[in-house]
Write a protein that binds this DNA or RNA. Sequence first.
RNA 1: GGGCCCGUAGCUUAGCCUGGCUGGAGCGACCGUCUUAUAAGCGGUAGGUCGACGGUUCAAAUCCGUCCGGGCCCA
Length: 1069
Amino acid sequence: MGGGDRGEDRGGVRRARGGGCRVRARSDDRPRPRESRDAGRRDRRPGPPDEPPGTRVPEPAARRPPSVGPGPLRGPFFIRGGTSQGRMGPEEESGAPSDASVQAKVLAYWERTGVPGRAIADRPGAPEFWFTEGPMTANGAPHLGHLISRVLKDVELRYHRMRGERIVSSLGGWDCHGLPVELEIEKRHGLKSKKEIEAFGVERFCEECRSSVLEAAAQFTEMSRQLGFWLDYEHAYRTMDPGYIESVWWSLRTLFDRGLLEKGHYVLPYCPRCETPLSSHEVAQGYRETSDPSVTVRFPLVRDAPIARELLVWTTTPWTLPANLLVAARADVEYSVVREDDGRELLLASAALPRYFPHGANVVERLHGRALAGATYRPPFDTPGPAPGRYRVVLDDSVVTAEGTGFVHIAPSFGPEDQRIGAREGVGVFDPLDGRGVFTDVVPLVRGRPFKAADPVLLRDLADRGRLYRSETIRHVYPFCWRCDTALLYRAIDSWFVRTSRATDRLVRHNETVRWVPEHLRDGRFGNFLTEAKDWALSRNRFWGTPLPIWVCPDGHATCVGSFAELAERLGAPLPEPFDPHRVAVDRLALRCPTCGQPARREPYTIDAWYDSGSAPFAQYHHPFAPGPFSPERPLDFVAEGIDQTRGWYYSLLVIATLLFDRPAYRACLTNGHVLDESGRKMSKSKGNAIEPLSLLARFGADPVRWTFLSIDFTEPMRLGETTIQRSSARTLGTLLNVVAFHLEAAGTELPPPSAGRPAARGALDRWLLSRLEGTRADIEAGLSRYELGVAAAAVRSFVDDLSTWYLRRSRPRLRAESDAEDRRAARSTLSYALLGLARAIAPLVPFTSEWIVQEVGGSHFASPESSVHLSGWPGPLAERDPALEEGMREVRDLVEIGRELRQRAGVKSRVPLAELVVFDTLELGEEGTALLAAEINVRRIVRSTSADQSSYPESDWVVRDDGGVLRAALPRRPTEELRQDGLAREVARRLQQRRKELGLRYEETVSIDLSTTGELAEALAPRREDLARELLAEPLRLTDEPLGAGPDVATWEFEGLSFSARVRRRAG
RNA sequence: GGGCCCGUAGCUUAGCCUGGCUGGAGCGACCGUCUUAUAAGCGGUAGGUCGACGGUUCAAAUCCGUCCGGGCCCA
């Protein structure tokens, strides 16, 4: 869409392939041009582009960032029914995979097996979810704004697809027409004006526009591919296609017949460089602060009196003074006559006196505006020449005194109010500018000067003639062309209008039915805009756009053509084959006026490209000329774009739906804020702080980027940088990947089979995890159903946290070979089940990570498309919720925290066991809860006490947690001697484990250990030698009091005044 | 000049609609800690006029008003 890439460079990477012309008459069934077929076939090739078919992606290749930037044209990448090429070879050795390697692997799998095409395949008969992709401006390079709204759309579309719904439609879309594209071509050929374009050749110019669009589309498609944004790009709609244009014509004809499309001569914002008027919503995109003259000019009254009187008139546009025809005053405003030292008298509003005479003025008379009505004056320049009624003071209520002098200079060509007043007074118009905003011969003084450049010359002339009272410069906000950044001017011009002002109440009413996210937009920014809706200036004096299908005969009868068939009929001849309904081809066609029979010529306009994009819901189906699922009664269920589209696509969609079908355009509207850099500044190429989507995706992978957008509040302006992405993705996605990696490694070949189903979990920890899993699934479902994506993300974050820091932490021994077989199986199947369930529930959010988990934990290892999570349905309830259990576990975890605090206060490290923890008056923890608590804080037993009597726990022997007089728990200050020795053994074991790790030993590898120590430590170790050996997988573990001597495999440790040394050796074999 | 949004610890923020528990949490800092998944986890410490002022109320981060600051949009 047009609004997307304001301020971005348009110098996209140019690819050598020319744009094949796809244009043909609608009856034409010839195959597509070669180029797009080639592009398609390319991607049909199995495996990643750089690999021969069917080979495994080697590790190093997976670590390399996916290729971006200049490269071969990829073309549409979602090919339906792609072939499967067998499985990918064995899994990586060990350790958690990086996001980038996950992404590369999953992407290759999808493209090899055609999963995306199958996932988005049409499902006739299924419940429908109506959506339309806002057509992307096929121009310039994608930026972060494109990226984020595509993430939001993709999440919702995936969710609804998983629910079994039929997405109407899943087509991608390209906004092909309009100034952005034209500017690109102008730049490429150094064209400076419309005249030069005409000399260049309009047909050739349009042809270049067309191919430029096709080239730019490739970059956007690549971004979507890397992001995992699944739409049907192969059949993407394009606003320049003949069928699309015919649908737009049909809609314009409908409006024309209803009297809602009319020609007028009104003052409109006008870009002198582009030589075309702009619509108010385009102007809205281009305001910025600038410096302008602020001048006050003397307008001498023509009067029959000895004392000269002069009106003071203020303006910020001196260049409009040569077009002055009237001065407006207000009847009920009081004006003062101020006598100057030289005897001349000045008139200005009394309210303006402080601004002009801060130190007081010699006011000789006061009068009201009405007394001045009809007074004549000498104009600042005499260019327009005399005519009846000119150069008079007229009265108008639009005059204000908050700024200026209370006298308003009226140039009917150059302002909406001016035009109205001029028309009322019948003084005609006078426009001394040509189409480029350059003064013509009628003002010799500034002939040939662009309007702004005339200011200094005109001011100097006024000063020379003593007519300039005051000249200053002000900073104020002024509109500039949103595309070429030229200062706009307001001028009267012929234009075709869509009469939106006649539908204001319906626009407002329809908007009230929309679910806006964030909600405040409905009645706030967007709602306000609707209530002041002005007529939509539709026509553009340009080349590359949908031609306005209106022909006018010399008598002024206008004929609006609503289809190609009608055009042929009115032409009395078949249309040329192939027919390209763009300028030149269409301009050539002269109709016979149906009213008077005279030849009629087409109005030489194109239409606002925003009208094209607002027609997308029906025009993408070539409605009403081709059969399709579109229904005039049904609004879209969902659209999502950036906040800038409140004045862009959201608006044009609503206007067109209202005028054409008298219904809202969409039911829900998800809107994201702008992306700022890390210090809160706007991103722009010129500032060098812009982040390119493709490089971002290459560096971090799609899911970390997606996750970041979902985790921050995307409805407000977002600060975003690399650290933001690193942090938010490491925290949740990184943790999740590590949980999976741990599970896979610990389970090894004993990974539960994929068909295992819901485990019959008996243990509290397992049941707790499943209960939490189901709660999470339900929260995600609720969030996505209400378009509250942040709610879904928060639920995932909290679950992953619990999964990692509590379930896995407490289950590590169970998951390894250390526990009994049944418990081990229970833990593994529970974890597998939870990971697979979670993966399905987060598939819409992080499709790559989700797919990887399902493939690896599910055991299908990227073998077939059938196993893809994205072809599975949205999960129903995954387990029983058990609120009491969740609450009990909360209590256990609270007590763990308390226990740790008590340990810290007692100064006893966790690895030194203590005899007991006494807990008071808490929930029933159950046997398992008690065991978890005891294990986690390393006490031999938990004692539950109901007598909260502090005196039983003297401070000399106990540390006590006391919450405002209520005892929670008590812990002995010191271990018993035996426990202390246990602790010492732990110290030794911990250090030797560390040593094992340093030596790079795997868990199951056995070692031989010679351990030398004396005294207290030897005493502690001797009786615990067997346990120690088992734990360290040491065969043998030899204890000695002889020094071990030196050697590279001997290490010595000291702690708490004790020391030992050990020789740890890997056992051969 | 108008409209909308935002303002809570150095940073990111929850809580505000529907007033009441000691204003929670994450990052960062510091001290300590964890028998080997993690850029991790855990305990503790420091860090808050909840933008300012006024009002309503027994009670205000929360409701109302005014103002200040920032952002976006419009004129």
